[in-house]
Design a protein around this nucleic acid. Structure first.
Lengths: 217, 217
DNA sequence: CGCTTAGTTGAAGCGAATCAAAACTAGTGG
DNA sequence: CCACTAGTTTTGATTCGCTTCAACTAAGCG
């Protein structure tokens, strides 16, 4: 993804950070001081309402960029709360230093743009899920999404098994349902033989065909 | 927004196009040949499912950029169908020529990035609407959104009046409801004195306070 | 082991969808 | 200018999927 030069440049200004599950990395509204990259684990991008309702608007997987990059706008505040869904390892760097780096390596900015475009596409796909899909379709879509993401990150689903990085409550919060409904739908998939689960979080086997079918489109 | 130089450069390669309401500009899946800017009118960004369900994932107002810009990826296909919600006037330019222009004016790319970031933020806010808001909140949020957008484009809502660019069906499609529910909610707001309407599309007066209150957050 | 938190399951209620039809608009041609 | 038609919007009655409320069970942790 990044060139050798860009990586060494990044390493020079970066700092490793560890967050344990549930810990908040940045809070919506706070001053945005740094960017980061996910090294290991999964983070939640949360938009919260004053009345307590929240919506997880995105997940952060290994290699994902954290923060919205905008050149010449260092005054910005964080638009989302970022919380560790699992234990989370990230690699952070100060905004100013990163901006200098993009001056030396303009291609870096183009790559950030490409990532932002991908995120936009994903967000809009999720809008379709939230606006038009049924409960069963939402859960199936989510499961496939996570399976693919963890497969892409190497370890995990080679034999069709993977770990859910989110609790039922978080899943519900991401796909616009309640905990109970998510639980019920997962049970349905289990009964139908599309899933095998051990201990709530570990998917030991899943029938991709069946889930894709159930996901709707 | 754009500098004098950038504008003259754009004008040199651009071509004016007119679309009448309902006409399709580009179709999801087609080869992406050009970018464009909205000059006048409103466009719909549509994601469609094979089974007929659709979701309007975004609206295009005057001065909005059309197309997802990605340098060195000229092979891309359109991710969304774009249809004229009202009569629509756009200013289009070939992808290749535009890419050349960003080489001469690198700041252009930075500006595109900034726009993409804004769109991403809007898309995620809309995710909250679709995932967590009630019917009344959705309609109120939409009305404020349109009022502000048309106010920003000069003409229109100085005296608190503006034109709805979308049919009830389109509104429903954008906020994840049905036509009937949208209609009912608008009637409620009328009865409550938060809106005055003439002929289904023309909002002659609206109580911003009340709508913001009803929008939830 | 007991305590706390997370997940499952059941019953009842409700908000929005669906189904159905009337009222209104806008466009067309006589 | 009016009658006619096609499409949009409104309104009403009913249904249904998900939420809510409540209780129970399983799992993680001192």
């Amino acid at each position: 993804m990044l060139s050798r030069d860009e990586l060494t440049g990044l390493n020079r200004i970066s700092q490793r950070k560890m967050l344990s599950r549930g810990q908040v990395y940045v809070l919506e509204g706070d001053a945005a001081l740094e960017y980061a990259n996910v090294v290991a684990g999964v983070g939640k991008l949360i938009r919260g309402a004053p009345d307590g309702r929240t919506q997880i608007v995105g997940l952060l997987f290994p290699s994902d960029f954290i923060g919205t990059y905008e050149k010449h706008r260092s005054d910005r505040t964080e638009a989302y709360t970022i919380e560790a869904a699992t234990d989370l390892e990230i690699c952070s760097f100060p905004r100013g230093k990163f901006a200098q780096l993009t001056d030396v390596h303009p291609a870096l900015e183009t790559k950030i743009l490409a990532r932002t475009v991908d995120e936009l596409r994903l967000a809009r796909d999720w809008m379709v899920l939230l606006g038009r899909k049924t409960a069963a379709e939402r859960v199936a879509t989510f499961l496939i999404y996570v399976a693919d993401k963890t497969a892409a990150n190497g370890c995990g689903s080679q034999n069709g098994s993977f770990e859910l990085p989110l609790s039922r409550a978080d899943i519900a919060d991401h796909i616009g349902l309640t905990v109970e409904t998510v639980s019920r739908q997962i049970t349905e998939f289990r009964k139908a033989g599309a899933l095998e689960i051990s201990g709530a979080r570990k998917i030991t086997r899943y029938d991709r065909e069946a889930l894709v079918e159930a996901a709707g489109f």
